[in-house]
């Protein structure tokens, strides 16, 4: 593995683990096998956060509905009467936004500015995009979470 790949992977791992630990108050461990399947008796939910400057790309989170629901009710204490779907969207979008900011903060020099886009959210099958660069698989309690970095700019970053 190249130094640049290691740099990207380390930056994303730090961003993901710190964000999940600090935002979910749970211990997080990375799972080393490359491919995991998000198991959900319902559907998989995802949040996609565009990276705009200096690299064009995306941070994608895929999670089970059960885990997302447990975050909404058990961790953040949203009431049963509050709209679950809207709360899940809010939670995953905030997490994706924080991961993206932390990732670029870790990757770039301190004085370099960056810009993020607005999060998108969906449910159904796990979302997959072209130009996957790295996927970090996490185990949080009994649940798994996938966080992926996409983008041709990052492919170029690795080549140059």
């Amino acid at each position: 593995m190249s130094d640049k790949f290691e740099k990207l992977k380390n930056a994303l791992t730090v961003a993901v683990t710190q964000t999940m630990e600090n935002m979910t108050f749970e211990e997080v461990s990375t799972v080393t096998n490359d491919k995991i399947t998000i198991v959900s008796s319902g559907h998989v939910v995802w949040a996609l956060l565009p990276l705009k400057i200096p690299y064009d790309g995306n941070i994608l989170i895929n999670a089970s509905f059960e885990y997302s629901e447990s975050l909404v009710h058990d961790v953040y204490g949203f009431g049963e009467d509050e709209a679950v779907e809207a709360s899940i969207k809010d939670v995953l979008s905030e997490i994706a936004n924080t991961i993206a900011g932390r990732f670029l903060g870790e990757l770039l020099p301190a004085e370099e500015e960056f810009a993020l886009g607005l999060p998108d959210y969906g449910k159904g099958k796990p979302l997959d995009l072209d130009n996957e660069i790295i996927t970090i698989n996490l185990k949080i309690g009994e649940h798994f979470l996938k966080v992926s970095l996409y983008g041709s700019d990052f492919a170029t970053f690795l080549e140059n």
């Binding site: 935002m23 108050f25 953040y76 204490g77 949203f78 709360s87 809010d90 939670v91 905030e94």
Partner: peptide, 9 residues
Amino acid sequence: AVMRKILVK
């Protein structure tokens, strides 16, 4: 609301 919940926690 999520960030408020996190801060409150």
